[in-house]
Design a binder for these strands. Structure first.
Lengths: 152, 152
DNA sequence: CCTCATGGTTTTAATTTGAAACCATCGTAT
DNA sequence: ATACGATGGTTTCAAATTAAAACCATGAGG
């Protein structure tokens, strides 16, 4: 599961997380978890993937501390899979993925699910990256800075 | 390359984009492209992946309209790979991934690259999702709404 | 007990990945 | 012209991963 990571990536902040969720299914499992799914069978039914693969993915998500198992819930003797704090931290990423998908993978008039404010049912705004002073910044306004103390 | 997508996913807005960038390398290529890399050899050197794999990934990114080739630049007879509008649309997603990585994949004192405001060198703020009225909303404040007209 | 539902693991085949070798094109020096 | 190195790939083949299906374990209900 763990892939070798090149030099630059060890401190890059992008490659490391990809090791945890960088495959097709893991993010979909997390999304389903956000939608309230908890049981092995629910995930399998929703995603339609082989049970061994789901098993492996859940194991990986558990190993990375993105999900955890909780003993019961409705009295059944099985366990449930729920997001940890770390897993819930993926919310902005999923929103970003969803908004990108809406922008470029659907026809303007094509129906798709919408992320809405639970309070009033209105769609949420677009994600915006802001600088310390509050300016909205895009790619061209930012740069990456390497850590001052040269590690490695 | 194209994976079968279950019913719910066809309109979900998350699964579709994953088909385009849902593997380990593609996002790293895009990140490198944001960092200014353009040439086949540059990507290969930076990422340290096999040439055939890089070739396949670039082909896929081209096919999905995330990158495009431009004929020259510095006079050399080769082509360069640059992000399209669609590709640049991945910026928020990469920021989200990076911020999640910073939060959970590095020790508090561990060195890592930082995304900073080009204007003054200060780190950017965290991504925040806001409702129409400007409230910052989290997972629990939102829900997904299926399209009213039942498609399929 | 027998049987069913749930939640997996094992087995086996197909696909994907990766390393290395090979090849094509252009620019340059001879 | 022609050898040669740099760049940008493709082909080949072994190894790892994924997927489908069969199998197994546990507890609940009859």
């Amino acid at each position: 599961m763990a892939k070798r990571v090149s030099h630059r990536d060890s401190i890059c902040g992008v490659a490391r997380p990809l090791d945890a969720i960088g495959d097709w299914w893991s993010l979909l499992i997390v999304r389903d978890a956000f939608d309230g799914l908890r049981r092995f069978g629910e995930f399998q039914k929703s995603l339609g993937l082989a049970k061994n693969i789901l098993s492996a993915r859940l194991r990986n998500l558990l190993a990375h501390g993105i999900m955890e198992t909780v003993p019961a819930a409705d009295g059944s003797p099985y366990q449930e899979y729920v997001l940890t704090e770390k897993g819930r931290g993926l919310f902005p990423l999923l929103v970003a993925l969803r908004q990108w998908g809406e922008d470029f993978f659907f026809e303007p008039d094509e129906a798709h699910v919408l992320l809405v404010d639970r309070k009033n049912g209105l769609p949420v705004r677009r994600l915006e990256l802001r600088a310390q002073d509050g300016r909205v910044v895009g790619v061209e306004d930012t740069m990456v800075r390497l850590p001052s103390a040269s590690a490695e």
